Simulated assay, not measured.
Amino acid sequence: MKKIKVEDFKISSKVNIKDLETKVDLGVGKKQLERELRTVSENLADIQNTMYAHGKYAVLMCIQGMDTAGKDSLIREVFKEFNVRGIVAHSFKKPTELGLKHDYLWRHVIALPARGKFGIFNRTHYENVLVTRVHPEYLMYENMPDVNSLDDVDDAFWDRRFNEINNFEKHIAENGTIVFKFFLNLSKDEQKNRLLRRLNKPSKNWKFSPDDLDERKCWDDYQDYYEDALNRTSKEHAPWYNIPADDKPAARYIVAKILYDTLKEYTDIKEPELPAKQKANIDLYKAQLEEE
């Protein structure tokens, strides 16, 4: 099996999105990948249990990708070995009326994981520099004081928004949140195949929406804006990882391995020591139970 190296997927310099891989051959079949994923997932769950007891770090996992990139199934498969108390997932869709009465980051801030927990953002704050660039008219719903028409949405507006996102991520990273950002990089041909499967399989019809085809027409625009976002916001404290997403089992394994290989380097994540008095009396506590 091909060895996974975190640095091979990490975006640490300027990229051209057309040069990024959408498929990778790990040298093994689906069943072997599923077995390997289960092992890594179990190891990740052990780390999370320790993190829960330690209470000093949180993990924020951000997932972005085009429609049908496999976000939901990746979350399901990577984290199926986790204790549910230690993980919470949020799927960010169209902002609610309440959300639109706050700044665009508000709903993401209130969903951040507590220390000791894993938080997953299925679609993220990056929708605000992706979807809104493809469809800038959506910004008018935010009712911002300095945006009275689309003429006010200029390069300076987007520069400011990217700075705000970078500052947000730097702030949470400096306060104990370990940030991972995964771009599920799907090819246009594979998206077509997956949309057709949704239409051809009655049990999957509910997943299809005509809006999917409208958004597909904007494919090139989305690719341009993803490239810009990756280049502007992949930082050491909050890196982006390009995850080839045409092969779902491989993508799931790569994500899990990146999480595990990165987190295991945090040697300061460990179970807290018992108070000296309790530790000294462990044998006494055992005897009390055994004598019942």
Results as ranks from 00 to 15, higher is better:
K3N: 10
I4W: 05
V15Q: 11
T22M: 10
K23G: 00
V24A: 12
V24D: 01
V28H: 06
V28Y: 07
L33T: 03
D46W: 00
Q48F: 07
T50Q: 03
A53R: 14
H54A: 09
I63C: 04
I63N: 00
D72E: 06
V84W: 08
H90F: 14
S91P: 06
P95C: 05
H102L: 02
Y104G: 06
L105Y: 00
V109C: 12
I120M: 02
I120E: 03
V131Q: 05
T132K: 05
R133M: 09
R133G: 05
Y138E: 11
D151A: 15
V153M: 05
A156K: 14
W158H: 06
W158K: 07
R161L: 08
R161W: 06
F168V: 11
H171Q: 11
H171K: 09
H171L: 12
I172A: 05
I172E: 04
A173P: 09
A173F: 13
I178E: 02
L186V: 02
Q191E: 11
L195I: 11
L199C: 05
K201N: 15
K204Q: 13
S209A: 15
K217T: 13
E227R: 13
D228G: 00
D228E: 15
R232F: 10
E236S: 15
H237Q: 15
P244Q: 09
K248M: 04
A250H: 01
R252E: 01
V255P: 01
K264H: 06
T267F: 08
D268L: 08
K279F: 06
K286G: 00
A287L: 14
L289M: 14
L289G: 13
